[in-house]
């Protein structure tokens, strides 16, 4: 039994999730592939969005995958870092905007 929760080699086995439910697995991967195709957004833009979300979701597999994917698409490290800051800003903003809820509650209970 492995002693850590994450093993980089497991990323290569992602497709195996279909082994235990072929139909849903197939549907997911078909959807996944479709999402990343060139559309109203370029595949390059989608790759940067995926990289930012990979960080906000803190998914090490996705971070590995979309860093490499970005490099293959000619994305620079400056663009990658900016994308991550977008993710971080939304994460931070999402925390802080709830401060209004706290303030509302304080004002109601102790205003």
């Amino acid at each position: 039994m492995q002693k850590t929760y994450y093993d980089p080699a497991d990323l290569k086995k992602f497709g195996k999730i279909s082994d235990w439910n072929q139909e849903l697995g197939d549907k997911f991967f078909e959807y996944y592939g479709k999402v990343f195709e060139e559309g109203a957004l370029t595949a390059r833009e989608k790759s940067l969005i995926a990289l930012a979300v990979a960080h906000t979701e803190q998914c090490p597999y996705c971070i590995d995958a979309y860093t490499k994917d970005g490099l293959q698409r000619g994305v620079t490290k400056e663009e990658m870092m900016e994308a991550i800051h977008v993710g971080a800003a939304i994460k931070g903003g999402a925390t802080l905007v709830h401060g209004v809820q706290m303030m509302n509650k304080v004002n109601k209970l102790d205003g």
């Binding site: 370029t42 595949a43 390059r44 490499k68 490099l71 293959q72 698409r73 000619g74």
Partner: peptide
Amino acid sequence: PSGAFLPGDQATM
């Protein structure tokens, strides 16, 4: 490529 990764799609690049 400048490192240990494969080139992206030629037409897009």
